[in-house]
Design a protein around this nucleic acid. Structure first.
Length: 234
DNA sequence: GCGACAG
DNA sequence: ATCTTGTCGC
């Protein structure tokens, strides 16, 4: 059963890029990086993703809860709303978070570890979507992105499980993780209350058969399907 | 200054 | 993110 709700953009949501960057600078200090996070294969893991229809000004977020041991779907929810911010590199969170928060709130059970489609610490101001969502909810969060953004990395060795640092200059902000032999890696970073090493281990545990973790695959499919049938939000 | 840049 | 058909291969 899937719960569907309406998402509202908060009244105090930033209206300009300057305001949004100021929010990131203010919240960044609240990120917790000294917790390892839950062991892979234990408890629950929730994938969140968002789909857009700019023509209709509709955004739909999905949250899909998986049993970490079996990767079976335990619960899922979607939230539809109006687009709250334009896409600006470095400010993705302001476009996705209101809908994602509504979807998480609509879940009938605790989400456990939250896996985001995007970055956490691997961000120009070290405060990407996953970190932002973690600070707002208090939940352990991590990011798995499909592209290296503006960061550099050396291609990991071919075997699944190989990794290489994702670098901002000399700083390791994340890791390129090979989830399938010889296939383009995914880009993992810590969000909140999860270590980078654990985020990489979680990613491998969540991606036994495909390049992308099951959390992202399931949440991506759900928000896209929901977008097709979404009514115009209030 | 110009371009590149998670989704 | 989204626009988009068929096609090659396991």
């Amino acid at each position: 059963m899937t719960t569907t709700v309406t998402a509202q953009t908060p009244a105090d949501w930033p209206a300009t890029e300057e305001q949004a960057r100021a929010v990131q600078d203010a919240l960044r200090a609240r990120v917790v990086l000294d917790e390892p996070g839950p062991p892979p294969g234990t408890g629950r893991v929730t994938g969140v993703d968002v789909a857009y229809d700019d023509e209709r000004d509709v955004v739909v977020a999905a949250a899909v809860v998986l049993d970490a041991a079996t990767l079976a779907v335990v619960a899922e929810a979607t939230a539809a709303g109006r687009i709250s911010f334009p896409y600006v590199p470095g400010l993705l969170a302001f476009r996705e978070i209101p809908a994602v928060l509504a979807a998480l709130d609509a879940l009938p059970c605790p989400p456990g570890l939250v896996v985001c489609d995007g970055y956490g610490l691997a961000h120009p101001r070290r405060f990407g979507l996953a970190s932002h969502l973690g600070v707002l909810t208090g939940l352990p969060t991590m990011g798995v992105a499909k592209n290296p953004f503006a960061f550099t990395y050396d291609d990991p060795d071919a075997p699944r499980g190989s990794t290489s640092p994702l670098l901002a200059g000399a700083e390791e902000v994340g890791r390129a993780v090979r989830t399938r032999d010889g296939v383009k890696p995914v880009f993992v970073s810590a969000g909140h209350r999860v270590s980078l090493a654990n985020a990489c281990a979680q990613t491998l545990a969540l991606a036994p058969a495909y390049r992308l973790p099951e959390t992202t695959r399931r949440s991506d499919a759900l928000c896209r399907a929901a977008l097709r049938t979404a009514a115009y939000p209030a």
